[in-house]
Design a protein around this nucleic acid. Sequence first.
DNA 1: CTGGGTCGTGAAAACGTTATACCAACAGAA
DNA 2: TTCTGTTGGTATAACGTTTTCACGACCCAG
Lengths: 340, 340
Amino acid sequence: MKGRRAPGLSAVAERAGVSVSLVSRILTGDATLRVRDDTRQRVIQAAEELKYVPHVSARALRLAKAGAIGLVVQDVSNPIHAEIIRGAQLATAAHGQVLLLADSPELASNAQAFDRLIGEGRIDGLLWQSSGLDFDDELASRAAGHLPTILVNNRPRAGVPGIRLADEEAAALAVEHLIELGHRDIGFVGGRAVTDISVRRLAGFREAMDRHGLPIRPEWIIAQEWDAAAGHAAMTSLLACPRLPTAVFVANVVVAVGALAAAREHGVGVPGDLSMIAVHDAWFVEHGAPPLTTVLLPLRELGRRAVELVLGDDLDGPEGGHLITDPPPRLVVRGSTGRP
Amino acid sequence: MKGRRAPGLSAVAERAGVSVSLVSRILTGDATLRVRDDTRQRVIQAAEELKYVPHVSARALRLAKAGAIGLVVQDVSNPIHAEIIRGAQLATAAHGQVLLLADSPELASNAQAFDRLIGEGRIDGLLWQSSGLDFDDELASRAAGHLPTILVNNRPRAGVPGIRLADEEAAALAVEHLIELGHRDIGFVGGRAVTDISVRRLAGFREAMDRHGLPIRPEWIIAQEWDAAAGHAAMTSLLACPRLPTAVFVANVVVAVGALAAAREHGVGVPGDLSMIAVHDAWFVEHGAPPLTTVLLPLRELGRRAVELVLGDDLDGPEGGHLITDPPPRLVVRGSTGRP
DNA sequence: CTGGGTCGTGAAAACGTTATACCAACAGAA
DNA sequence: TTCTGTTGGTATAACGTTTTCACGACCCAG
């Protein structure tokens, strides 16, 4: 599995017949360096012949820069998070950096591991995909004391900068679609109620309803958790209401999967008896029964921008934090919405 | 965002009034060291007061050990891969290591990034979640030349060790279930045909059919890709056969989502007209229409073991590679299978 | 032919660890 | 007293980079 030791700068220098420092300056592209062109070529060729690759720990030690950024997410198997990860990964790669993955429950349960992660100089910045769990703020702000840190998919919070999507607009867009179809009785199924995302999507929902002069019934507003099981439970309790809405806005497509199942189990036809629209798009929605109408938000872009802000140490955005408006939320009409 | 520089060994040494080397030896738990107990306490206390955290690059440089392992996956948003990632993450964390995430298409398209990743000493080992794409073998075996490398979810291949699940047994278990229900005409929908997993599941399928003396119809064997769209296409072409099976085994639950949708679109009732069973379990299957009957395989354990093998540099397993048999494949009966 | 300014390159220190070798002090034995 | 061994440490040299500074050679002006 192993060959001999990897060649270092000194091996290249020896082969090219020059000093170590010269090799370093040539290979890193030092602009202030004046060197004869044939020497430069000799060095470059020697490096190629030896397949020289700089040793990252040595460089990191010298530069006090790790060349890596960390991404903390609550749950990798959530497809929404997966898209963010993907975006972050592409961005780090594009900047010659590398992505470290950790998960927040694990870090919360192991304080020492957390202190190491943020203190040992392994990463230059941290993306915190916040969960809304209780340890969340505490850890994130502790991290921010050591590293450029940004809350992904959140407003700034506890003194930590944040970046978010156009959640209000997305929710409004969804509601407009329902209204346009003729719905007036519209319910809301959210995620974990304390999370910023759920709050913002509810705000967008309210705003759109108000703007069209439609009443909001408190018993049609349910927010529990961000997973499918919660969606199932939420829809079940919604369907227990004496009077039912003709359409429901679901704050997240994962939650919608559970909600859809619950509706089906209760014999409520979608979109016949109840229209449903959800935020985010994912690989599975078009194969649903029925395929879900959704509002597409640029999750990948979210991951990408977060990385760039952290790398550029350009964290303090406008009031309310950084906001991704391009591309704007887009309505993807499929089979789960129709006339009341 | 930043405080002052992180304290180093020398800061701790100064505060405790001892030498740097003593601090190092105490803090790393050098067994050959003889030291007075009060000195030891003084050092430990000083380290705590300063919140000393060892600088990982310096340590990596000195020890020629990075303290990280890399995980290359083809697509993060595949829920199957997500489970493997999760297992790998838990295992690395448990060993005080850290997990680096990369994706194979990206690495394939950027040869320099790949050479860096495996050459720059950033990781001590590599987990390669192979994709069956054309670049796959090439890259994996190149990696294996630099680092302890293991193919996850694969037999050994191209000289690279591998670890896999009990795919044959899982397939057989699924087929047995169908046979027990009374099915005799059973089809097979695989994944990308060249991948080891698809091959092995097909082998398990054939073996179980043979054992029960059931004929296998070539036109009922379809293998295309590992995603839902491919499942949709496969099922569509299966349903075009003049004579249809009464049940179908699908090699992967993601593929099954597409297959299920295709059946629905063609008015084929599941399980009324066609029973369906798939390999792996994921969060969305129980909310399907109908909820899928599956065979559960220990994906997380796969990730965990792979990490441990790489860390222990214990790669060359038995003929055919390492095989995870514990826990064994388990049948999870839901609503997609029934009597013919 | 002396002096200052480039041009091209090399020497050396530093980053924070760990490992090896060594040493001072003291005890007990001869 | 001198020798030997143990106890409790310290000094130092790496690991592979990057960066600062210095230096020899050459050129041109005075």
